[in-house]
Amino acid sequence: MIEFWGLFKQNRGALIGLWLVGLVGVVALLAPWLAPHDPTEVFAEALKLPPFWAEGAQAKFLLGTDDVGRDLLSRLIYGSRVSLGIGFLVVVFTTSVGTLLGLFAASLGSFVENLILRLMDILMALPSLLLAIVVVAILGPSLINTVIAVSIVSLPNVVRIVRASVLVEKNKNYVLASKSFGATWFHIYVKNVLPNCLAPLLVQATFGFSDGILNAAAFGFLGLGAQPPTPEWGTMLSDSRSFIESSPWLVTLPGLCILIVVISFNILGDGLRDALDPKTRRI
């Protein structure tokens, strides 16, 4: 752990990523105190006000207001809660289920392995956004259903990564030693092998965050994700599409927020990977 932190600290990208992610996290945590207004409060007398750098702006609404008169800055700040929340839930779900499936696939013999891998092949062969759209259509559009849909389509990645690293570990001597002592499956795989596979899993989880946030925003954009008046960035963006010419900031700013958060997680992920395993510099 200390060794990892040492490597991590040396990696400038990783540190920048960590700072950025931390910053977004703080904004999300302190949203009620940071936001000047309630994100759903309607100011009927202040519709589509421009942000502070444009003419006609009001100091009360730093980044302007949307088409029903809600403060954009407050909605963006609260939006970070929604996005991070989705990312977090997606990562928790895919990592836990994916790790179990990956472990099973690598350790329970060829029948189970084939079954799980074929299942993942099927998931990968289906167009992921379409699959997610159908899942949301079945469950109904809402935030939690977005999480379920996005998690299902990002499952194969985690399963593959866990299986691959367990397969490598499985042939090492310590596993053989453990086996020869008559250790149980649980003891060998969960207690001995799994901790050694954490590095790639951690990296994958970081990228899972950015993927989850991006996919959830795409869902919001298609009108399938968070429902109004939840301040979700993708939904905000798509709701303002018709005012793109008259009030472009309503489209520009939420998208910029998505981009910044996703970039932060990607930088962190890159840094983690380089720190944990300098040899595997894949995509």
């Binding site: 950015s210 991006l214 925003a217 795409a218 954009f221 993708g234 963006l237 798509s238 599409r241 793109i244 010419e245 472009p248 489209v251 520009t252 939420p254 998208g255 998505i258 981009l259 996703v262 970039i263 990607n266 930088i267 890159d270």
Partner: peptide
């Protein structure tokens, strides 16, 4: 490329439309 692969493309498309088309 970091910006590129972090891009929410639905937003990117709209931005390009504002700029190049509108």
């Amino acid at each position: 490329s970091l910006i590129g692969y972090s891009m929410p493309i639905f937003w990117w498309g709209l931005i390009l439309v504002i700029f190049f088309s509108v």
